Amino acid sequence: MSERFYLYDDVVSTKTRFVSFMGENQRFDLAIIQTDRYYGKQVVLDIQGGRFAIIGQDDLEEPNYLEEVFKLNSEDGQELREFLYEII
């Protein structure tokens, strides 16, 4: 077997917030990870849906970004966007 070639192998400290809230149509169970990586953006994990994205303010302003990444309808996407605007 050949030697493993790493592109990087770093250990970093993170701050993780676990939050669950009820929207009009669905429940959101999220883990929001803050780290020094990703140019100030945060990793947002949809725990139940098994999806994640690296999100910053610019991404929240991108039309239909959250809806596409997290497979949400426009109403649920807007609820998630409003919540993330408060914390990102």
Rank of each mutant, 00 (worst) to 15 (best):
G23Q: 00
M1I: 13
V19R: 02
Y39F: 10
F5A: 15
D36I: 05
G56Q: 02
S2W: 02
S20Q: 04
L84S: 01
D29E: 04
D9R: 06
E79L: 10
E24M: 03
Y6P: 06
G49H: 07
Y39E: 12
F18A: 09
Y6R: 13
M1C: 11
Q57A: 15
D29W: 00
R51K: 04
V69K: 00
V43I: 09
E79Q: 04
R37T: 06
L66E: 02
V44F: 04
R51H: 06
Q26M: 03
L66N: 00
I47L: 03
D46K: 01
Q48S: 15
V11H: 00
I88N: 04
F18T: 08
S74A: 03
K15D: 10
S20I: 14
E75Y: 08
E3F: 14
R17M: 07
K71G: 06
Y6N: 09
M1R: 11
R51A: 09
E82G: 14
Q78D: 13
Q78K: 11
Q34F: 12
G50H: 06
N64M: 13
S13C: 15
T14Y: 00
S13Q: 14
Q57P: 07
Y85M: 15
V43E: 05
L7C: 05
Y85A: 15
Y65L: 14
Q42H: 12
A53W: 01
R81K: 07
L80H: 01
L80A: 03
S2C: 11
R17C: 07
I33Y: 02
R81F: 03
L45S: 04
V43M: 00
T16K: 13
Q26H: 01
D59K: 05
G49A: 02
N25P: 03
R51P: 05
V69F: 01
Q48F: 14
F21G: 02
G56S: 02
F28A: 04
N64Q: 15
E61T: 05
E3S: 13
P63S: 09
I47Q: 12
I87D: 09
N73T: 02
Q78G: 05
Y6A: 04
I32Y: 08
Y65S: 13
Y38K: 03
Y8L: 12
Y8M: 12
G56M: 03
Q57T: 11
T16W: 10
Q42E: 11
V43A: 10
S74H: 09
D36G: 05
L66R: 01
I88D: 10
K15S: 11
V43H: 09
F52D: 10
